Amino acid sequence: MIKILLVGLWVCALTLGGVYAAVSLGGKPDENAEAKVETPTEYVSGETLSLPVVSDGEVSGYFLARLSVIVDSDKAKKIHVPVAPYITDQLFGLLVGDKLIDLPNTGRLDVAGFKTRVKDGINAQFGEEIVTGVIVEQLDYLSKADLRSEDPSRRSHTVKIVEGEKPPEAKSEGASH
């Protein structure tokens, strides 16, 4: 009987010692744990745009573009301004103003660089890092000659500049912020 009592006390002492050692030697929690928490994001759908391409003083064709962005929803709520018009502004500036796409060499478009320029441009207008990602859903070119052609099979001819990405399935699709 005494042996069983001594074995029980020995097991209790070992258990308590193990718990004490685990707690005291376990260290502090990871200081970067808060940094690893994902920021809440929101999907903002952009409009489908038809942007004119002007060469030699006349319209030679149109870019069909649709971009959407992923924004930090906490920061977007603070600005109280719709983000979609800023997407349109950036697209117009890059495709029409800066002529970022060289039409004979459309295959040379740096898609990652294009997305970065859109993201950085929108964030610069807001003055803070609101946009966290850009989704290129459509970026095509239609020449004016193809649009005016009598041949219906030629009318549907578009130059796919970028193969479209699918937007994420989000709860807040089409949000205005």
Rank of each mutant, 00 (worst) to 15 (best):
K3E: 11
V7Y: 07
G8K: 04
V11K: 04
A13W: 04
L14F: 11
A22K: 14
D30R: 09
N32C: 00
A33R: 10
A35E: 14
K36I: 02
V37D: 07
E38P: 00
T41V: 14
Y43M: 11
S45H: 08
G46Q: 05
G46E: 05
E47C: 01
E47D: 15
P52Y: 06
V53I: 11
V54A: 08
Y62T: 04
A65N: 08
R66H: 10
S68F: 04
I70C: 05
S73E: 15
A76K: 05
I79P: 08
V83L: 12
V83G: 09
V83E: 05
Y86F: 12
T88S: 12
D89P: 00
F92Y: 14
D98N: 13
D98H: 12
I101S: 02
D102A: 08
D102G: 01
L103T: 03
L109T: 01
L109K: 03
V111C: 08
V111P: 08
V111T: 13
G113I: 01
G113R: 09
T116W: 00
R117I: 01
G121I: 04
I122Q: 02
F126S: 04
F126L: 11
G127M: 07
G127I: 05
G127C: 08
G133D: 15
G133T: 00
V136I: 12
Q138A: 13
Q138S: 11
Y141Q: 02
S143D: 09
A145T: 06
A145M: 02
L147Y: 06
S149A: 15
D151G: 03
S153R: 10
R155M: 10
R155A: 06
R155L: 12
V162A: 12
G164Y: 08
P167M: 12
P167A: 14
E169D: 14
A170M: 10
S176E: 15
